[in-house]
């Protein structure tokens, strides 16, 4: 169904492409700094050591999932809750790989599986734009991903060290940064009231209702998110009303 593009499609994987990707990712570092630092601060606040925090950042490397898992963090940690939270937040990345198939299908071995390990929202967005401009060097995707990975490790590490030394009390305004980060991430995802209003409202309302009913995390989040996504998908699948007929019959 989603076959590679027909016809000759030469894809390369060069160091020059990686460097070009890394250069394209440089402006993103400004946005990464507070988010990474915040993950480090929250991790320190939850009692994770610097080594544990860096291990998480290095092999999970997914800011929103890390933040959410840390928000749900208990002592001792719940492997199921943290793993499910990571799965729920990151499942959005599953179709990204499929969208990048014109590049990825031409890669093998570490180039394919290693590049996929560094896939994040921003490297996806930049690479799709590069692909649409006619770019054929898949090293670009790895270049963005690696630059952001290194920056992520540094920012999270700094946040942990600072957060650990300052010892912020619970309820400190800095912790609002966790909510602020997700609110900020919602803004560019908003495509307009027709597409997003009802699914987002349903997601929020259902999550809240499940929480009020006493369901443990991540079920309120999971239920709300899946219901909202299902409503959006249903809306997308509906045939558009015929021209001239506003609401159909």
């Amino acid at each position: 169904m989603t076959e590679p593009a027909a016809g000759p499609y030469k894809v390369s994987f060069t160091r020059a492409g990686m460097l070009r990707g890394a250069a394209a990712g440089l402006p993103l570092l400004l946005g990464l700094l507070p988010f990474g630092a915040l993950v480090g601060v929250v991790a320190a606040g939850k009692g994770l050591s610097l080594g544990e925090t860096l291990l998480m950042s290095g092999i999970v490397y997914a800011g929103a999932a890390q933040l959410l898992s840390l928000e749900l963090w208990t002592d001792p940690p719940s492997i199921l809750a943290a793993t499910l939270a990571a799965l729920v937040v990151n499942i959005r990345m599953a179709p990204m790989g499929a969208a990048l198939a014109p590049w990825l299908d031409r890669l093998r071995g570490w180039r394919l599986w290693g590049t996929l390990a560094t896939l994040v929202d921003h490297s996806f967005a930049l690479s799709i734009a590069e692909q649409r401009r006619g770019g054929r060097d898949a090293g670009y995707l790895l270049g963005v991903g690696l630059l952001l990975w290194v920056a992520w490790m540094v920012c999270v590490g700094l946040g942990h060290v600072l957060g650990g030394s300052v010892r912020l009390p619970p309820g400190h305004p800095l912790y609002f940064g966790g909510i602020a980060a997700f609110v900020s991430l919602l803004v560019p995802l908003w495509r307009g009231p027709r597409q997003d209003m009802a699914p987002w409202l349903l997601a929020g309302a259902l999550a809240l209702a499940a929480h009020v009913l006493g369901l443990p995390q991540p079920f309120p989040l999971l239920g709300g998110a899946l219901a909202g996504a299902a409503l959006a998908a249903w809306h997308e699948a509906r045939p558009p009303p015929p021209a001239g007929q506003e609401d159909g019959r």
């Binding site: 299908d105 929480h211 989040l221 998110a225 959006a232």
Partner: peptide, 30 residues
């Protein structure tokens, strides 16, 4: 998985639309 087997169009559409509702649900709870 998506490249090998493909998924029903509805599930693909759900995956495409998941990010907004995830963050909306999280922000509402928070």
């Amino acid at each position: 998985v998506l490249r090998t087997f493909g998924l029903p169009p509805f599930v693909q559409a759900m995956l495409r639309n998941l990010p907004g509702p995830i963050f909306a649900a999280y922000v509402t709870l928070a």
